[in-house]
Design a binder for these strands. Structure first.
Lengths: 173, 173
DNA sequence: CGCCTCGGTTGCTTTAGGGAACGCACGATG
DNA sequence: CATCGTGCGTTCCCTAAAGCAACCGAGGCG
């Protein structure tokens, strides 16, 4: 059985649990771009209808997507992102930026993001306080208020609480 | 057989292929924080040794992590991030930010990021050109130079090239 | 020598994904 | 009216991958 990570006390685990796998990310990408119907998605992605149905259901249950009826008799739905789902766009954009940078074809990226500022945008993950890029070399991880131990964070909790007592100049790594 | 997405012409698919699943993200998180040995990781995450070995191997092959010997006879390694791997920190941070916002416990987030600017940082995905947040409502997706069709982007390509001919004011959605 | 630790590997069982066919409610077509 | 086509799933069978636990080999320690 696949380990259930939903109870794990880690936001990363929980986010990934929602996204589920590569298909989940690709479905969201398509929905963000405007492919919102079952068959459109199935044909575009080429994944099995079974998995598509399962992912869409789980997205609806999670509150990431919403079914919007565009016909009754028979009931037919568009799947559109909720506010919660729309905020996953940042994650998708970050994935896309990394892939463009490190896994691109010679031909260049297959798609581009045009920002309202007029420029072709590349996603950059920044610190919300100072606006500077959030790089591994410029951060230190500390234990947070909800930092109890448990599967998924067994020794990490100890390590982090030790570390936050030390001088914080030395970045982890 | 699991569909091989490595040939899919989409940076998101390729990035997710590298991350693989929730375990992949959690392993990277631990490595970024300083848990770099096999048994440390296995005990912290509680995942099966088999899967851990497989993920670490794939990360090394992908050039995300590097084995650094800390003992010979018997050979023992730390797994440390390469430059390519370190840049995935942005993706992890974005996942963490979303999880903190939408899936947090009442207790608060289990861990926090201290940025070099001194503040506790929340990751924000921004446009690298203007610095403003990159939100779904403020972007439009266009076909890129390498945008040929194929599994994973069958009708998306058509949709995007149509759309870039239209007025770009209407966001997708 | 016996025992512990680290870093895996192997075998067995369970589960989830792929592929393809089926179902079903409707509308359009011949 | 019979049949076709479309939209949206659901079901069946098969294989690949995850979980669990045991095992293994090189070395250190008492």
């Amino acid at each position: 059985m696949r380990t259930d990570l939903s109870g794990v006390h880690c936001s990363i685990a929980r986010s990934m649990q929602v996204l589920h796998d590569a298909w989940g990310a690709l479905i969201l990408r398509d929905v963000f771009v405007g492919l919102t119907r079952f068959d459109q998605l199935q044909q575009d992605l080429g994944l099995s209808r079974k998995v598509l149905a399962a992912r869409l259901d789980s997205f609806v249950v999670e509150g990431i997507l919403e079914k919007r009826a565009y016909a009754e008799h028979p009931p037919r739905y568009d799947y559109v992102p909720t506010a919660k789902g729309a905020e996953l766009f940042g994650v998708i954009a970050a994935l896309m930026a990394w892939g463009d940078r490190w896994k691109a074809d010679k031909a260049g990226p297959p798609a581009r993001i045009r920002h309202d500022c007029g420029a072709l945008a590349t996603a950059r993950v920044t610190c919300d306080q100072c606006g500077e890029p959030l790089l591994l070399e410029t951060v230190a991880t500390e234990a947070g208020p909800g930092g109890r131990l448990g599967p998924g964070t067994r020794m990490l909790g100890k390590l982090l609480s030790q570390r936050s007592k030390q001088a914080r100049k030395t970045t982890p790594m």
